[in-house]
């Protein structure tokens, strides 16, 4: 009898003292996903450049007709360079990413935001890379109202107006998507692209046409280049530990 009482008392004590798991508030920062840790000693680099051959694109002037206040933000003409040809015959703003080879791996998304800025009634940058789950910030640096409208297919589509001086809009893209077009519903000429990946292995070619995907675990991959007018190209590559693989993508003009 005494034993049973003691057992009951112990049970009660335990029930009273141990935190009940179901009443414990969920920690919103807790993430139980088993992420892949990258070992730099067993990873390499994919680098290279994007070359353009043939006749260069005819530069298109931006028509600010829908909002004359936008034209006032520019001195002289302003160009819409869908094909961003560099002085050295290479292309900028080409999105290069690992398309195949990382299946089954999950990488912790960064907590630092990827930011797009509306300035001069234009998106900066025109090409942005972000990971699914990473914070996306949109800033209005203009003295007028904008509207951010990512035309997503894999994540929930949204649009929101942003008046001058407003706080940055803060969102996330839930799932990978190559490529999300960003619109401004108010200024139809404004266009940007966001490449949403589920890993950090992407790069955007710069003003010298080069790119580098660093810290990529050794293995076989399909690398894709994406250009908004000229389309996609793919190349196979085998990355070795501490090795550097150099690729060259070539787009031909008309």
């Amino acid at each position: 009898m005494i034993k049973r009482l003691a057992a009951a008392a112990t049970f009660l004590l335990a029930a009273a003292c141990s935190p009940a798991p179901e009443t414990k508030p969920a920690d919103p920062t807790a993430d139980s996903t088993a992420y892949t840790e990258i070992d730099p000693s067993r990873a390499g680099v994919v680098t290279g450049k994007v070359v353009f051959t043939g006749k260069g694109p005819v530069r298109q002037k931006v028509d600010f007709a829908e909002d004359p206040n936008c034209a006032k933000l520019h001195k002289g003409e302003f160009f819409n360079d869908a094909i961003a040809l560099n002085n050295n015959g290479t292309l900028a703003n080409v999105f290069i990413y690992v398309k195949v080879g990382l299946e089954g791996k999950k990488f912790r998304p960064p907590t630092t935001p990827a930011t797009i800025t509306q300035k001069g009634c234009w998106f900066e940058p025109r090409m942005l890379g972000i990971e699914a789950g990473q914070p996306f910030h949109a800033i209005n640096a203009d003295p007028l109202t904008h509207n951010i409208h990512p035309r997503t297919a894999n994540s929930r589509e949204w649009n929101q107006s942003q008046d001058a001086g407003a706080d940055p809009l803060i969102r996330k893209f839930a799932r990978a998507e190559i490529m999300v077009r960003i619109k401004c519903n108010i200024h139809p000429w404004m266009k940007a692209w966001v490449g949403v990946t589920e890993h950090p292995f992407y790069a955007i070619s710069g003003n010298d046409g080069t790119f580098a995907i660093k810290n990529l675990p050794a293995g076989k991959y399909t690398i894709e280049a994406w250009q908004e007018e000229l389309g996609t190209q793919q190349q196979e590559v085998t990355v070795t530990a501490q090795g550097t693989e150099t690729l060259s993508f070539t787009y031909k003009g008309e």
Binding site: W158, N159, D163, A164, N185, I186
Partner: peptide, 19 residues
């Protein structure tokens, strides 16, 4: 009271409001 001018208001509606 977020829209300061009538142009801001018209722009807000041109944009389709906020989803």
């Amino acid at each position: 009271g977020k829209q300061k001018t009538l142009k801001d208001v018209v722009d807000f509606y041109v944009g389709g409001g906020n989803s």
